[in-house]
């Protein structure tokens, strides 16, 4: 294949989607994981079960409900359309919302594990050393959870790279807008364009492997070893 005709667009969309999703997930996932790690509330098991749902639910089920919710008459899509005038379904913003839900457990669970491992004991020590709750979270709990953050970022990113069913249903397959690598590969295989499929699949394989390799190598050198 001549590399000059290689279509880079799905690659950029995929990377942009994964990066945006992970950023949103860190903002949402951190307080959720923190609450799960420290609460004594009865609601905890319910929230844990909901967070873990995407692990067991077929992507098409999640995609179907999301499509309805994000549609022009949906609970999210409706208000969005009346405010912005554009549709959430079959848009990049819609993809981000879908991916965020789909990858939620991959970010929340490692963070929750990290917060639980350091526990309340170090926080109590920080409070007794004049640190407010926020200060203790930023200066003690977060740096101690650095491995959890690393795992969460990598898993969230990699899982978003790899999703297919949800993005197909919610995003459709609009070139330049919502067509991501995994869907592009499927299209190429359908069209019997195996050399294109090889380039994209091989690239994704290499990228995923390199990311994991760097993370595991880096993880060993981190100063914080709990447990």
């Amino acid at each position: 294949m001549d590399p000059s005709i290689f279509d880079w667009q799905p690659v950029w969309i995929t990377l942009k989607l994964a990066a945006t999703t992970v950023s949103v997930l860190l903002l949402i996932g951190t307080p959720v994981a923190w609450w799960l790690a420290h609460t004594g509330s009865r609601a905890r098991v319910w929230v844990e079960a909901v967070v873990a749902l995407p692990l067991v639910l077929p992507p098409t089920v999640l995609g179907f409900y999301l499509l309805i919710a994000l549609g022009a008459n949906g609970v999210i899509g409706g208000p969005f359309q009346s405010v912005t005038g554009s549709s959430l379904a079959f848009s990049f913003a819609g993809l981000v919302i879908a991916s965020t839900l789909y990858s939620l457990p991959f970010v929340v669970q490692p963070l929750q594990g990290a917060f639980e491992a350091s526990g309340k004991t170090y926080l109590e020590a920080a409070w007794s050393l004049r640190a407010s709750k926020w200060d203790a979270f930023l200066s003690v709990a977060s740096p101690m959870a650095v491995r959890g953050y690393l795992t969460a970022i990598v898993l969230g990113f990699a899982h978003t790279l790899g999703e297919f069913g949800v993005v197909l249903m919610v995003g459709g397959n609009i070139p330049g807008k919502t067509k991501v690598v995994s869907i592009a590969i499927y299209d190429h295989v359908e069209a019997l364009e195996y050399s294109h499929a090889h380039w994209l699949s091989g690239g994704l394989l290499l990228l995923s492997f390199m990311v994991l390799l760097i993370v595991y190598a880096f993880n060993r050198r981190l100063p914080v070893h709990l447990s």
């Binding site: 920080a126 003690v140 100063p223 709990l226």
Partner: peptide, 8 residues
């Protein structure tokens, strides 16, 4: 009782 020094 456990010194609780910050490991990082």
């Amino acid at each position: 009782q456990d010194a609780r020094l910050f490991p990082h």
